[in-house]
């Protein structure tokens, strides 16, 4: 299981992140200040760290150096949205940068992508009767390869990585198409229909009235 350390001094945000990461299947440890985080880094091995920059006692930048020495990837979480802060964080070796307020689904996506970059996550996802190769971008169903378009693959990945979560049409559109969602757009529905048909997921991708879709594994 992948272990993630979350260092965030605001209890509410810390809890929010931990709850969601735990639901996504990660093992999460929370530290409420820099000192606590440093102690945990010393005692345990982690696969990924999420650090707030402004932490009591030991700041995020210092923690970053420590984590880097242990070769643990780091994502910064901060309310400071200025470009200079981002540049500083990334130059010091942070792997990604999240500006508050952020959406949970975005956080999960970034965590996933950083982990993949470090090969800390499995390359192949096995869901139901499908095997999804995240790097090769191929899908096989019962050992038979299924041809998906670029967007369809991203859509499938989004569903599979967020099981049991209601995905709003706008969220789907923003994550897969990386653009601002238009109210009347049917793009998402069309793609979901095609995906369902190609992979026989009619039973697993539920339509939520007026909201969007939910992927269930059962």
């Amino acid at each position: 299981m992948i272990k993630i350390l979350v260092a965030e001094d605001d209890e509410a945000i810390s809890n929010l992140i931990c709850m969601n990461l735990a639901k996504a299947g990660y093992a999460v440890k929370a530290a409420l200040d820099g000192q606590e985080a440093a102690d945990m880094l010393e005692k345990e091995a982690f696969d990924l760290c999420l650090f707030d920059i402004m932490l009591p006692h030991i700041g995020g930048y210092e923690l970053l150096e420590y984590a880097k020495s242990l070769q643990i990837p780091v994502i910064f979480l901060t309310a400071k949205g200025e470009t200079m802060d981002k540049v500083k964080g990334l130059r010091l070796g942070a792997d990604d940068y999240m500006v508050k307020p952020f959406q949970i689904i975005e956080l999960l996506a970034r965590v996933e992508s950083v982990l993949r970059r470090y090969h800390r996550t499995v390359q192949k996802l096995r869901v139901l009767d499908m095997e999804i190769d995240v790097l090769a971008r191929t899908v096989t169903k019962n050992g038979e390869p299924v041809v998906l378009t670029y967007k369809e693959f991203d859509l499938l990945l989004l569903f599979v990585q967020n099981p049991n979560r209601a995905l709003y049409r706008e969220t789907i559109y923003e994550r897969v198409w990386d653009d601002i969602y238009m109210e009347e757009s049917r793009t998402v529905d069309l793609h979901v229909q095609r995906l369902k048909k190609k992979l026989g997921l009619e039973r697993h991708i539920e339509t939520i009235y007026k909201v969007g879709y939910r992927f269930v594994e059962k």
Binding site: D10, A12, I13, L16, I17, M19, N20, A79, K100, P101, F102, Q103, I104, I105
Partner: peptide, 12 residues
């Protein structure tokens, strides 16, 4: 900071 929590928990 409070907005992040509010948005996050509401989203959950």
């Amino acid at each position: 900071t409070p907005l992040t929590s509010i948005v996050g928990y509401a989203d959950m």
